[in-house]
Amino acid sequence: MPHLPEHLLAGYRNFMNGRYLTESGRYRELAREGQAPETMIVACCDSRSAPEAIFDAGPGELFVLRNVGNLVPPYEPDGEFHSTSAALEFAVQSLKVKNIVVMGHGRCGGIRAALDTNSAPLSPGDFIGKWMSLIAPAAETVSASTFMTATERQTALERISIRYSLANLRTFPCVSILEGKGRLSLHGAWFDISTGELWVMNKDTGDFERPVLE
């Protein structure tokens, strides 16, 4: 009996006979010299919005951090366990990435949970509820709007949460200092699962706009 689900083993066979076969030299180079991606992506765990697929990235091109709701907590050097902050620290301080992109997406379950304050926790620990409380003030404001439909509230908070994460990124000294020196750029993006559209945040206005693809 296999120790992995058969569909995973089948996918691995396809990988070895396809992509790895054509890019084996690149993989050997990465193994020998290490990774040096220029871009970090902070994305959601959602299986429908994989950054490597959306940006057609090859091996070693993106340093990807995924968590529920693509959130970045504020800088808190309190001695506790901070996986998102650890990944950010490694990307900025060790890999010296030049770009950090916070990418949200449509129909996000984490954002839906933040808006539905009446939903029961999935477990006694309520880890999702605690995590999504990072954007509680925005969720409360958006939920109170009776002029928007449920879908509009969902999309609004998905995009607002990206701005929250960008603001929290700037609370990390290593990020704010390098951004001030022009050595690190922060970006926001939102992906629509149903249409494949990518919306990019305008740094000057905060609005999300469709990029012109030539």
Rank of each mutant, 00 (worst) to 15 (best):
P5G: 00
L9D: 12
L9H: 11
A10E: 14
A10V: 11
G11I: 07
G11D: 05
N14Q: 12
G18W: 10
E23D: 12
G25Q: 09
R26Q: 13
R28Q: 06
A31T: 08
A31G: 14
E33P: 04
Q35C: 13
Q35D: 12
A36M: 00
M40L: 10
M40E: 04
C44Y: 04
D46W: 05
R48W: 09
R48Y: 09
A50Y: 03
P51S: 07
P51D: 06
I54D: 03
F55D: 06
D56Y: 12
F63W: 01
L65S: 07
L65T: 10
V68L: 11
N70T: 02
L71N: 00
D78R: 03
G79T: 04
G79W: 05
F81R: 13
A86Y: 11
E89W: 09
L95H: 07
V97P: 01
K98Y: 06
I100R: 01
G104N: 12
H105V: 01
A113H: 13
A114I: 08
N118R: 10
S119H: 05
A120W: 03
D126P: 02
M132S: 06
I135L: 12
P137V: 13
A138I: 06
E140D: 01
T141N: 02
S143V: 03
T146L: 13
M148K: 13
T149R: 00
T151L: 13
E152C: 01
R153Y: 00
R153L: 08
I162G: 04
A167I: 00
N168I: 12
N168Q: 14
N168V: 11
R170T: 10
P173I: 12
V175A: 09
K181V: 01
R183T: 02
L184Y: 03
L184H: 05
L186P: 05
G188H: 08
W190I: 00
T195L: 12
G196C: 12
E197M: 15
P211T: 05
